[in-house]
Design a binder for these strands. Structure first.
Length: 722
DNA sequence: GTGGAGGAATGGATCTCTAA
DNA sequence: TTAGAGATCCATTCCTCCAC
C-alpha cells in the first residue's frame, strides 16, 4: 500500500457503515498480541503472521488510519487497530475525487512580510531586492508566461528572504565593489579577476562571458551570463561550441579571439547552495547587467516559434526599465546581450518522475519509495529493449542503460512503451529484487546500498485491459569480479555499482555536503528537464499535493578502511561455519587450526585452495585464489585485496546451505545455486531470477492527476503499433 | 579450465527535433 | 532561437556459449 487516498472508505464490518469515518494518526508506538487471552475469540489470531514480529503486531508512531466506530461513552474506538486516546483526530474521510478538487495547487505559498527595499545600503542590494519583490508580486504574470512554471514555492516560499541573502553574499568582493552604486564602466568589469590558467575558483558560480576587443571601434563588446559548478570545464565547453555552433551567441563569440573571450566569476559560493537559488542568482545577474539578446523588431508574430522566449525577454526588460526609473541604478555601458533563456522560468519541464513514499504500517514491513516515469524503449529487431536514463551534474552528461534481455522481451511480449518504476528501500537495505546485486562488503562504506534500488517495467495490455509488470535486472555483476581479477583493477565492478548509486542520488535529490572530485561521484545529479515530484499527503486534513522533491544533504561516500570491512565481514558472516582470519595468517594450516565449534571437525579448507569470494564469483570461469603477498593483512587473496576486505572460509557443506542450492547451479560441477537466496549471497555479486510477468494495479498517478497526457500518448502509440 | 567467436550491451559522438 | 532530449550511428566492451 502506498497511500491512503481512497476513492471509497475501506469496507467495515456489518452494522458500522453509518458510524464515523475520521482520519487519525497514531501518537505512540504500539504493540498488539492478538493471541492473548483477553482478545475475543472471534478476532483472535486473525493477523497474518508476516505482519508480526515475535508474535506481536508492532505499529509505529505516526501510522495513519481511519476511525470508523466509537463506543457510546466515547472512551474507545475502532480505528483500524487503535484505542481512541492514542490517536490524533483529523477531519472526516474525503473520497479521492473530492481531495483532487480541494488539493492544494503546487504554487501556493505563504508570503513573508514585505520590507522596504529602498532602505538598503547600496544601489545594487536595493536593486536586487526590488527585482525579487517585484517578481514575487507578479507571480501570476510569470505563470502566464510559462504554464509549466512550478518552482514558485522554492523561489518565493518561506525561504524567499534567505534566498535573496544567499544571492547577495555570493558576489565576489571585486564585483560587489564595481557594481555597488550602479555606476561602472566596461573597464571596471574587465578589472574583476577572471578565470586564468593559474586561477580557477571552485564551487557554485555565476559567471559572465565578456567578449571584448581592445580596438573597440572594430566590434561592439558582448556579454553572456551563465551558471556552472565547474568553471574551468564550462569555459572549455563554451570555446569548443564557439568553433561550430550556429547559435547567435557563438556566432558573435566567433568574432573574438580566444584572448578576447573573458570568463569572469561574478558570484561564488564555496558552500552548498540549493540549485534553485543558483538559478535565482543567474536571473539576478542577467537583469543586473541587462544581458538579454536584443531584437531589431519590437514585435514578433505569435506564430513565430521564438515568440515565447521573446515574450519573457520583453517582460523582464520592461521590469528592469521600470525599476531603473525608480531606483538609482543606471549603468552607463552598452553591451550586446547574448542571453535568450530566462533562467527563472526555464520551460524545460515537460516530463515528470513521480515519487510516492511507502506507508510504514507495521514495524516489520519493509517499505520503499516508488518513482515512476513514462518511457519508450529504443529497440531494433532481435535486440534487447534498452532505455538510456539520462542524468547530468550541471556540466557532464551521465547515461545509464537499463535493459531487458531479448529472450525476456520475446517471452513476455514486452512493448516499447510503458513506465519505468524505481523502488528505493527506505531502510537502505537490499531490495528483494534489486537491479544490481552487490556484496555487503566493498571499497566504500555501506557498499550494499546500491542494491537498495529495484527497477520494474510496467505496461498496459489493451487486450486484457490489465496493467502488467516485470522486474528489470542489470546482469553481468558476477562476471565483473573476473574482469577485476584479470585487470587487477576494480574499475569495472565499481562502474556497475556507481550506476545504481547515480540513479539513487538523482531520484532522492542527494547533494554531497563535503564533495571530493575525481572519486567517480558527482556532487548532485538531476534528470535535466525531467523533474521529480513527490506526493505529499496531509492525512488529518484529508488533502494531498505534488511538491518538488527537495534536495537533501548527505555526507560524501567514505572509502571503507580495512578495519571497517573486517568488522562488517565478522558482523555479517562470521559464524561457527565461517572463519574470517583477523590476524596475519601465513598458511592455510593456521586456518585449519581454528576450530570454533570445538567439535574436532576442521574447516577442511586445505582441500580447497579458495576463499568464499573467489568460489562464489567463479562464473562463468573459475577464479584462481592467489594469495596477495604484498598485503599487510595476512591471508588475503588478490581479489579480496582489490576489494579491501578479508577473505572468508566456510565449510563446504555449510557454504552450499548459506548461499543456496536451488537449480540451476552456478557451475555444472558445483551444487551452489545460480540464483542464491541464503544470507551468504551478500558475500559476492550475485544473480536474481527474473520474476516474470505479473498483473498490477493501475498507476496511482493516473488518479492523482499526474501523467494524464503522457499516459494517453503512450497508449495511442501502442494502438498505432498494432 | 581456457580461450575464442559472435552477438548483445554500452559508451561516445553527432544529428535532428521540439517545447513553449 | 535555444538547450536539451532522443535518435542514430559507430566503436568498443564484455557476456555467454561452446569446443577443446
Amino acid at each position: 500500500m502506498e497511500d491512503l487516498l481512497f476513492e471509497q472508505f475501506p469496507p467495515t464490518p456489518p452494522g458500522t457503515e453509518d458510524q464515523l469515518k475520521k482520519a487519525v494518526i497514531l501518537q505512540h508506538n504500539w504493540a498488539y498480541d492478538d493471541s492473548a487471552d483477553y482478545v475475543p475469540s472471534s478476532i483472535r489470531n486473525r493477523i497474518p503472521h508476516h505482519l508480526k514480529t515475535d508474535g506481536k503486531l508492532y505499529l509505529r508512531r505516526g501510522t495513519e488510519g481511519f476511525m470508523y466506530r466509537t463506543s457510546l461513552n466515547h472512551k474507545w474506538g475502532v480505528v483500524i487497530f487503535i484505542i481512541k486516546s492514542m490517536v490524533i483526530h483529523g477531519v472526516d474521510f474525503l473520497p479521492l475525487s473530492q481531495k483532487i478538487a480541494t488539493s492544494q495547487p503546487l504554487q501556493s505559498t505563504a508570503f513573508p512580510p514585505p520590507i522596504n527595499y529602498a532602505n538598503h545600503g547600496n544601489s545594487m542590494d536595493a536593486f536586487i531586492h526590488a527585482i525579487w519583490f517585484t517578481l514575487r508580486s507578479r507571480i501570476p504574470d510569470l505563470q502566464a508566461l510559462t504554464p509549466g512554471f512550478d518552482f514558485v514555492g522554492l523561489f518565493f516560499g518561506p525561504d524567499f528572504l534567505h534566498n535573496i541573502q544567499t544571492i547577495l553574499r555570493g558576489f565576489v568582493p571585486d564585483a560587489r565593489r564595481v557594481f555597488k552604486d550602479g555606476n561602472f564602466s566596461l573597464d571596471d568589469i574587465l578589472n574583476i579577476p577572471k578565470l586564468t590558467s593559474t586561477w580557477a575558483p571552485t564551487g557554485s558560480i555565476i559567471y559572465i562571458r565578456l567578449y571584448h576587443k581592445e580596438d573597440r571601434a572594430s566590434y561592439g563588446s558582448a556579454i553572456y551570463v551563465g551558471q556552472t559548478i565547474q568553471l574551468q570545464k564550462r569555459h572549455s565547453q563554451h570555446n569548443t561550441e564557439t568553433l561550430t555552433s550556429r547559435a547567435r551567441h557563438y556566432q558573435i563569440a566567433r568574432q573574438f579571439t580566444l584572448e578576447e573571450r573573458h570568463m569572469i566569476p561574478i558570484c561564488i559560493w564555496e558552500d552548498d547552495i540549493p540549485f534553485h537559488v543558483l538559478t535565482m542568482a543567474e536571473q539576478t545577474v542577467v537583469l543586473l547587467l541587462n544581458s538579454y539578446m536584443t531584437f531589431t523588431n519590437d514585435t514578433l508574430s505569435p506564430t513565430n516559434s521564438f515568440y515565447p522566449f521573446f515574450q519573457r525577454i520583453q517582460f523582464m526588460r520592461r521590469l528592469v526599465q521600470d525599476l531603473q526609473q525608480r531606483l538609482p541604478w543606471a549603468p552607463n555601458i552598452t553591451l550586446t546581450g547574448l542571453n535568450v533563456e530566462t533562467p527563472l522560468i526555464s520551460t524545460r519541464t515537460f516530463r515528470y518522475i513521480s515519487a510516492i513514499p511507502g506507508l510504514q504500517f507495521v514495524e516489520s514491513a519493509q517499505t520503499f519509495t516508488r518513482y515512476r516515469t513514462p518511457i519508450a524503449f529504443s529497440r531494433k529487431d532481435n535486440c534487447a529493449c534498452v532505455y538510456r536514463l539520462s542524468m547530468r551534474d550541471g556540466v557532464n552528461k551521465i547515461r545509464v542503460s537499463i535493459s531487458i534481455p531479448e529472450a525476456d522481451v520475446n517471452s513476455m511480449q514486452i512493448p516499447n512503451n510503458g513506465f519505468l518504476i524505481f523502488e528505493i528501500m527506505d531502510n537502505g537495505q537490499p531490495h528483494p529484487n534489486p537491479w544490481i546485486r552487490c556484496p555487503a562488503v566493498g571499497p566504500f562504506e555501506d557498499f550494499i546500498q546500491a542494491s537498495a534500488l529495484g527497477i520494474r517495467f510496467e505496461w498496459y495490455n489493451e487486450n486484457q485491459n490489465t496493467w502488467l509488470s516485470t522486474t528489470v535486472h542489470k546482469f553481468g555483476s558476477p562476471g565483473m569480479v573476473q574482469i577485476a581479477a584479470k585487470e587487477n583493477n576494480i574499475r569495472l565492478p565499481m562502474s556497475i555499482w556507481l550506476s545504481a548509486i547515480y540513479i539513487i542520488q538523482a531520484l532522492e535529490g542527494i547533494v554531497y555536503s563535503d564533495y571530493q572530485p575525481n572519486q567517480g561521484f558527482y556532487k548532485r545529479l538531476t534528470f535535466g528537464s525531467v523533474h521529480v515530484k513527490q506526493l505529499q499527503t496531509d492525512h488529518l486534513k484529508q488533502t494531498y499535493q505534488w511538491i518538488h522533491r527537495p534536495e537533501i544533504l548527505r555526507p560524501f561516500p567514505k572509502i571503507a578502511t580495512w578495519q571497517y570491512n573486517f568488522s562488517l565481514m565478522v558482523k555479517r558472516f562470521s559464524s561457527l561455519s565461517t572463519f574470517i582470519p583477523h590476524e596475519p595468517v601465513n598458511h592455510l594450516a593456521d586456518i585449519n587450526r581454528y576450530n570454533p565449534a570445538g567439535d574436532n571437525k576442521p574447516l577442511r579448507v586445505q582441500f580447497r585452495t579458495k576463499c568464499d569470494f573467489c568460489i562464489l564469483s567463479s562464473t562463468p570461469h573459475h577464479l584462481p585464489c592467489i594469495p596477495d603477498n604484498s598485503s599487510p593483512y595476512g591471508q588475503v587473496c588478490m581479489i579480496c585485496s582489490l576489494f579491501n576486505r578479508p577473505c572468508s572460509f566456510t565449510r563446504p557443506a555449510e557454504l552450499i546451505e548459506l548461499w543456496g542450492q536451488e537449480t540451476p547451479t552456478l557451475h555444472p560441477k558445483t551444487p551452489l545455486s545460480l540464483y542464491p537466496t541464503g544470507p551468504h549471497r551478500f558475500l559476492a555479486f550475485y544473480l536474481v531470477r527474473s520474476q516474470g510477468v505479473r498483473e498490477v494495479q493501475e498507476p496511482r498517478e493516473k488518479a492523482l492527476g499526474l501523467f494524464q497526457d503522457q499516459q494517453m500518448a503512450i497508449l495511442d502509440e501502442d494502438t498505432d503499433d498494432d
